[in-house]
Amino acid sequence: MVKRTSLEGNGCPVARSLDAIGDWWSLLIIRDAFVGRRRFGEFQRSLGLAKNILTIRLRALVDRGILTTEPASDGSAYREYVLTPKGRGLFPILVALRQWSEEFDQRPEEIATILVDRETGRPVQKLALCAQDGRLLGPADTTLRPRTG
């Protein structure tokens, strides 16, 4: 496997986040963890990823604190992969990616699922960036400034 350049020390939080997440396979593993997959075999069947690559990705997600391993919930000798608070913090990112695809995909009719509120069964609202006073913000409404203090 090609060694990638680390972005961990980069000053940009987007680059640092991408360094922590890893790659698109890792995001798909995290997606699967959100829908309840916990075992190596479940991830492997869902993704069709070669076992050696899946092993590397799962190990990296554990090393980065996104997943942890726990004894199997059924008492067997297996280990299960569970999202940590850091991993659960990726939920809005996955929702944003999903909603972006739903809006701009060339074949939206092929998207197999919709994200709904478990309590009401209704689709979730589109994520929006709001100012502290509640105004909706777009790219032209924001800027970057040096961190002080």
Rank of each mutant, 00 (worst) to 15 (best):
A72C: 10
E119N: 15
I21T: 06
L90V: 06
G36C: 09
F34A: 09
T68R: 14
D74F: 06
P85F: 03
F34G: 05
E109C: 01
G11T: 14
L58K: 06
W25T: 13
E119S: 13
R4D: 08
I114W: 10
I66N: 01
S17R: 14
G48T: 03
L83C: 03
Y81L: 08
D117A: 01
L144F: 14
R147Q: 07
W24G: 05
V14R: 11
D105F: 10
G89C: 01
G121D: 10
L90H: 12
A140R: 14
E110D: 14
R88W: 13
F40A: 03
D74P: 01
N10R: 12
K3G: 06
V35S: 14
R64D: 07
D74V: 12
D117T: 00
A131E: 10
K86L: 08
L7P: 04
L137D: 04
R122M: 08
L144S: 14
P85T: 01
R4V: 09
S76H: 00
A50S: 13
A140E: 13
I21S: 00
S76P: 01
R64Q: 11
V95W: 00
R147Y: 02
D141F: 10
S101N: 04
P146K: 02
V14L: 12
F43P: 01
T113S: 11
R57Y: 02
Y78V: 02
C12A: 07
R16P: 06
A72Y: 02
T55Q: 08
F91M: 04
L83E: 07
S73N: 13
D141H: 14
G121R: 07
V95L: 15
A96W: 00
R147L: 12
L97W: 00
I21M: 12
G41Q: 14
R39G: 05
A72E: 04
Q125W: 00
R145D: 10
I114G: 08
E8F: 08
V62I: 07
L49N: 01
L28E: 15
D23A: 12
D105K: 04
T148I: 04
S101M: 12
L137Q: 07
R31C: 00
R45D: 14
A60D: 09
Q106C: 02
D74T: 08
T84V: 03
K86T: 07
P92W: 09
R88D: 03
R4T: 10
K126S: 15
D141L: 09
R98S: 09
